[in-house]
């Protein structure tokens, strides 16, 4: 590693860290503002609220019918994770192991949804779903959420499968393993860490996916983030603390899965397939 000792380098280094520090301070301030407000009895024109209470959590749970919203959120998210996991891993396996004419087009097809704004494909897809009678239903929400999550699983799994030596499968075949036992006893154990990482990432992203769910969600198929949007949108109708209590509940559900996901993946994998090299 190289360290420059000149005065200008020191000033520059200080400035860079100062900007990074200020950003993190503001970021934590935004999160802390929500948490503090959710416990506030009254918070107007002072640095900190006058008193603390937990009553907003009880009122928010009842007012926003959170028990059913949380249940629906988990049903939607697990349906999306299971379907995109099954389809994504099989697709990724074929794309990683075989080279066939037209493969580039297929890969491009899985890249496109990540490059196009969700509303651009969401609005035509929502129109189709409404005409099929799926608008506002549970399966409508699941289907629209598959569009970004299936390609995500495929793109995360392709490099993971490519690094498994195909000769292991060939050896299993030589020793007489059928397709079923080859999959169950050879591939599945090898693929499990990668699948777990990919599926947890999909889970975290689907809980936070607002735009697409918002387009097709009906009163009985709202997820937490959509309910939170409606609550903030109509703020003034209900106490701000109640809305923030709901935001904290949303935050806790998301962070629970994020912490779990971070046991298996590097944080930067949430945005990209990072090829991390240790900086020396």
């Amino acid at each position: 590693m190289i360290r420059d000792q000149g005065l200008l380098s020191k000033i520059w280094r200080f400035a860079v860290w100062a900007v990074a520090g200020l950003f993190i301070l503001n970021l934590l301030g935004v999160i802390a503002a929500v948490i503090v407000n959710s416990f506030a009895t009254r918070w107007l024109g002072t640095w900190l609220p006058l008193g603390l209470t937990t009553k907003w959590y009880f009122s928010a749970w009842k007012e926003f019918q959170l028990s059913s919203v949380v249940l629906v959120t988990f049903q939607v998210v697990f349906a999306v994770v299971i379907i995109s996991g099954l389809l994504g891993v099989t697709t990724a396996y074929a794309l990683a192991r075989r080279d066939f004419p037209g493969k580039r087009i297929v890969v491009l097809l899985f890249l496109l949804p990540l490059l196009i704004p969700p509303l651009t494909y969401g609005i035509p897809l929502a129109t189709v779903l409404y005409q099929l009678g799926l608008g506002g239903s549970f399966w409508g929400v699941v289907l629209i959420n598959l569009v970004p999550s299936l390609p995500f699983v495929v793109l995360v799994m392709i490099p993971f499968i490519e690094q498994i030596d195909p000769r292991i499968e060939a050896a299993a075949r030589v020793f007489g393993a059928g397709t079923g036992s080859l999959f169950l006893r050879i591939l599945l154990p090898l693929l499990l860490p990668g699948m777990l990482a990919a599926l947890l990432l999909v889970l975290v992203r689907t809980i936070a996916m607002f735009e697409l769910t918002f387009l097709v969600a009906g009163p009985t198929s709202q997820t937490l983030v959509v309910s939170l949007y409606y609550a903030v949108f109509a703020s003034g109708v209900r106490a701000g603390q109640s809305i923030d209590a709901m935001a904290v509940i949303y935050m806790v559900t998301t962070l629970f899965w994020l912490v779990l996901a971070l046991q298996f993946v590097n944080p930067s994998q949430i945005v990209a397939r990072a090829k991390q090299q240790p900086a020396s």
Binding site: L27, L28, V34, A208
Partner: peptide
């Protein structure tokens, strides 16, 4: 550092908007 920075991405724009309404508000 990367864990802190991944927070706003996972929490999403709706949560951040809700927090900023309080954080950037006149008071």
């Amino acid at each position: 550092l990367t864990t802190i920075l991944v927070l706003p991405i996972t929490l999403g724009t709706v949560f951040v908007a809700d927090g900023l309404l309080t954080f950037l508000g006149p008071q």
